[in-house]
Amino acid sequence: MMVALAMAAVLSLSSASNARLLLNAHFALDAEREYVPMVGDSLASLVGELDGESTSRAASDRVLAALEERVKRTSCKPAKPGDTQSQPHDITCGGPDVDSLFPYYTALRQARTPAEHDRHGRRFLDAYATLLRDAPDVDLTRPSEDEAADGLLHVLFPFEAWDEKLNIPRPDVHYPLVPVCNLVVARAARCPGVDQLRKQIGQAGDESDQRLFCIKEFSRRQFELYDQCSE
């Protein structure tokens, strides 16, 4: 009788532990929705349109809408369901395989003229929206908290990894929660007054205020993609 009770207690504990893992998996995915605006900043930075009125911005919005819908129907589970010692970040999620978009990203990053950049940017955004909407699920491993705060979104939008493949230098990260500000500072690195620009960003307010300031600065300034400064 005591053995049976002990076994029941162990099974109950194991079940509760796995239930917590599943709950944490879904909670982590829900929490990542907070990072969707950062995806918008990154996409807008890539296509070079941040004024909110352009066709490219509309295409970015379609990507974000498709992302929101995809996240709603995405399920996650512990990577090792039978292992009660697994940590909440050991999670596998269903999602689209974004590797097929790497050629689109390459064409965009290697564009040599504004017309090429605009054309490839639109194709890139359209391909992303289609993939998020229609591609079948594959198993994706969500990175741990210390690898990427945005978890699954870091896997769905692996721009840093793609830049490494293309040997594109990573800009200094001064504003980890405001990617567009890093972009503006990186493109202004060779421009007069970059130190003043950094000071203005710091004085703009919280992350939301800094983002709005940097979007305006990006739209106001005319940058030649990292090669030279012109205003």
Score class of each variant (00 low, 15 high):
K77W: 03
A161K: 12
Y226G: 09
G151S: 07
F157K: 11
L21H: 04
Q203T: 11
T92Y: 00
A111T: 09
F157R: 08
D150T: 08
E69I: 12
L22P: 05
R122M: 15
E160W: 00
N18L: 15
G48E: 06
D90T: 09
I215W: 00
N167R: 05
R122W: 04
A127D: 01
L132I: 10
S14V: 11
G202V: 12
S12P: 01
T55A: 13
P88I: 13
S208N: 12
L11P: 01
Y105G: 04
N18Y: 12
G48D: 03
P192S: 05
T74I: 07
F27V: 14
V155L: 07
H26Q: 15
V180F: 00
R109H: 00
M38K: 09
L153W: 07
A65Y: 02
R221D: 13
A59F: 00
R220G: 14
A79N: 02
S45Q: 02
Q210G: 08
K72Y: 03
F213M: 11
E116P: 08
V155M: 08
E32C: 01
N167Q: 10
I91P: 00
R133E: 14
Q228L: 11
E49I: 09
S54R: 04
L11K: 15
S75I: 12
R220A: 15
D195K: 06
R190Q: 13
L46Q: 07
F223V: 15
L177P: 00
P171M: 09
A44C: 13
P143H: 07
N182S: 05
V71H: 07
W162Y: 03
L5A: 05
R73N: 06
V3N: 01
G95M: 00
F27C: 07
L101W: 02
S219Q: 14
T106R: 11
V155W: 03
A31E: 08
H174I: 12
T74K: 09
Q222H: 14
M1A: 07
A127N: 02
L140V: 15
F124N: 04
G205T: 11
D126K: 08
A8F: 12
A149H: 05
F218C: 05
I168K: 04
Q200M: 10
L22G: 01
E68H: 10
L101E: 00
V155N: 06
H174M: 11
E145D: 04
A135Y: 03
P192G: 04
T130Q: 09
G52P: 10
P179K: 02
L153Y: 07
K80Y: 09
P114K: 09
M38W: 01
C181S: 08
F213A: 09
M38P: 01
K165Y: 00
L50A: 07
R20S: 03
C76K: 01
R198W: 06
D163Q: 01
N24W: 03
A115R: 13
R142W: 08
V10T: 15
S15E: 14
E231D: 15
L183M: 03
A59I: 06
L131C: 06
G94M: 06
S54D: 06
A28D: 04
L183I: 11
A149I: 07
P96S: 09
Q87L: 14
E145R: 13
W162K: 01
T84W: 10
Q203G: 06
R198T: 14
L101F: 04
